[in-house]
Simulated scan of single mutants.
Amino acid sequence: MTRAHQVDEKTSARIDELKPTQGALGMEHVREKMRLTSEQPDDRRAAFMDEHALRLVRGPGGTLHVIDHHHWARAWHELGIAVVPVSIACDFNDRDHDAFLAAMREHGWIHPFDAQGNETSVEALPPSIGAMPDDPYLSLAAFVRMAGMFEDSPEFNAKFAWAEYFRERIQGDFASTAGFAKALAQAVAASREDEARELPGFKA
C-alpha cells in the first residue's frame, strides 16, 4: 500500500469547499443528525460538532476531500452552518491527480457509486456536499447498524455492502414516514437471514 502522509491536523473548513468521496448518502439518516445537532444547547453545540469532526484528506492543489462523516457534513449544510470542524488525516497535496486517486483507492477512501448503487466514474462524483443525491438504502443500512445488527469498522465501510444487500430484497415507498418505517422493519428482518452472515461487520 502507498505510504500516506499522515498529519492528523485539526482545523476548520468551509463546508461548500469540501469534496465528497462517495456518490450518494441517506437523507433520512441526515435528518436524524440534523435533529441531534439542533437539540444541542448553544453553549454545547461547538463541542458537540468537534466530537463529530469531519475526517478529510488534502488532495492536489490543497483540495479537501471528505472520507468519513458525509452525513454529518450534509446535516450541517442543511442547517446553514458554513464553517465546520475537520480533521485532516492524510496529506496528498504533493501528488498528481492519478497518483492521488490511486492512493485513495488503495486506502478504500473513494466510493464512486450513484444513488441507485451503480458504479460510476470518479469524475461523476457530486461536486459538493450539498449536491449529493439521496440513496434511501444507505439510510436503511445506517439505522440497522444503530440497531446493533452490524458494525462498521474503520478498515471497511460495511454500510455500502449492507445497502446493496437491502436493495436486492426490499422495495418500498421511501417518500413517507410510514413507508420508510415499513422498509426499515423489513431490513431488520433481512439482517437476521442466513445470507446476512456473509456481510462485513455482521454481529451474531
Rank of each mutant, 00 (worst) to 15 (best):
D96F: 05
L140C: 04
R74G: 00
H111I: 01
E164T: 07
L18W: 06
Q116E: 10
D152Y: 00
R197I: 06
L140V: 04
A13W: 04
P41V: 14
A187V: 10
A147Y: 00
V7Y: 04
A89K: 14
A178C: 01
T11Q: 09
D173H: 04
A141N: 01
E17R: 11
R197N: 12
A102N: 12
K10P: 01
A124N: 14
H69W: 02
L199C: 11
K10Q: 15
S139H: 06
G62T: 03
D152H: 04
A102C: 05
H77V: 04
G201K: 09
R55D: 11
G80A: 10
V188H: 12
D135P: 04
E164L: 08
E168C: 04
F160D: 10
I129G: 05
F174N: 08
E106V: 02
A181V: 03
D42Y: 12
E28K: 10
T2W: 12
R58W: 05
A204Y: 03
G148K: 00
A175E: 14
M49Q: 15
A47G: 11
R3A: 13
L56P: 03
V83A: 08
A163M: 06
D43Y: 13
F143G: 02
S139T: 01
A102R: 15
S153W: 01
A46L: 09
S128K: 00
E193T: 15
S121K: 10
S153A: 11
R14N: 12
V66W: 00
E32L: 11
L125A: 00
R145T: 01
L138Q: 13
